[in-house]
Amino acid sequence: MSRVWMGRGPLWVSAVLALSVLQACGGSDGDDATAYKTLDGKAPLVIGHRGASGELPEHTLAAYERAIARGADYIEPDLVMTRDGVLIARHEPMLDDTTDVATRFDASRKTTKMVDGVSTTAFFASDFTLAEIKTLRARQSRSSRSAAYDGLYEIPTLAEVIALAQTEGAKVGRTVGIYPEIKHSTFHAGLFGTHVFEDKLLATLHPIYGNTGSAPVFIQSFEVANLQYLNTKTNIRLVQLVDADDVNADGSMSLVAPFAQPYDFVVAGDTRRFSDLLTASGLAFVKGYADAIGPWKPYLVKTVADGLDRNGDGAITLNDRRVDGSTGVIEAAHAAGLAVHTWTFRNDASGYGFSDPQAEMAYYMTLGVDGVFTDFPGTGVAARNGL
């Protein structure tokens, strides 16, 4: 996932949240499964987004270990492929922003490739062998976060992430799941062949977890055709991600390329947009191949810019948007038999209308989301424990 909300919202939301928690939970504690409005009635999942990436450089074993220590139920490795066909954990096929590749390799190793229709010149993981990737060290890509850990951690493979989840899960006495994302399936198919990426992923997962829907694994993608293919090859749970570009003043979603459509739709000439996947017919379509949807969180809670200075700071900004409750997507998805896992919650970049990141996650949880992706899993666990 890629969206970042930089706003911090008004304090009045805390009062609204307190009331909604009482209404949703009936005053019972979080151990009462009937308190949850999730699809299965169980507590919502806390998913360590790229690990505990708010604390340590993303997609490193250290960040994943920290997420588990903070209580994450699942850890999320975004996956790209090396030149020699190994799946590694990186948010994008480009290595420039999250590693020190530019200090270790000459600029002649940069290439220009089309990524979801955008011409991009960068150091691509697909141009480096795993041995070369292992010489790199991760660095913090967000200027607002500490760079103190830059240069300390190498880039892990999917197999290493799985081993960590199992080892650390055993240490803490609970199962820790993994939530891999197939990054840019069409891009990788153009380099390595159709569904080579997906086949490699299953060749790694099935021997360890089995070919079963009860495995502590979700596979996610912003594209559709690869999930449809996987649905014919595995019983592991699949998740359709749903993107957008921005939020309009009236609370509707802005859809601008390359965030308007699944890229395989673009290539196939399919005019459906991401938002179409969340209509009644769209959810029925998704249910035909997936077990859950992963919409960007503004799809789920409507906020409106109505010109009021709610936080009293003398300026009307996105922080002052009015929160109007559920858009109905959660309820419609549940009616279609789909779980809802939404993203991304950050302590240092809360969503519109929320001043407190824990309160923000708790609000979504009271509406019935089945899981939250967060850079700060400890905050997610605290939000769930407070319901």
Rank of each mutant, 00 (worst) to 15 (best):
S146C: 03
S146L: 07
A159C: 07
R237T: 05
L201A: 05
L152F: 13
G173N: 11
K200N: 06
D150Y: 01
H188D: 04
G169Y: 13
T212R: 10
A125D: 03
Y149K: 06
Y149M: 05
V224I: 14
D150N: 15
I133C: 05
G193A: 07
R139N: 08
V217M: 07
L164H: 07
N248D: 08
L130Y: 14
I236G: 05
L227D: 09
A165I: 09
Q166P: 08
G190K: 04
V242G: 06
P258W: 02
S143K: 13
V256C: 04
E168F: 07
A138I: 02
R142P: 02
A125I: 01
T232W: 09
G251T: 07
S141H: 00
A189M: 02
F218I: 05
N211F: 06
A203H: 02
T157E: 11
P156W: 08
L130P: 13
I208D: 05
I178D: 10
Y229W: 15
T232M: 03
D250K: 11
L158D: 03
T186N: 05
F187Y: 15
H206I: 15
L241Y: 01
L227S: 10
G169E: 13
K183Q: 12
S126H: 08
T135S: 11
G210I: 10
V176Q: 11
P180K: 08
S254Q: 12
L136Q: 01
Y153I: 09
D243C: 02
R237N: 13
L241F: 04
K134M: 14
L230T: 00
G177A: 08
F187S: 02
G210Y: 06
S143P: 07
T135W: 05
G193L: 00
D250P: 10
Y179G: 02
H188S: 04
T194H: 01
P180Q: 10
K134E: 15
L230S: 03
A159T: 14
G210P: 12
Q240I: 09
Q240A: 13
L255Q: 14
F197V: 01
N231F: 02
A131L: 09
Y179W: 13
L164V: 13
L230E: 04
A131F: 06
Y263M: 06
I236M: 15
T204Q: 14
I133H: 01
A138V: 05
A138M: 14
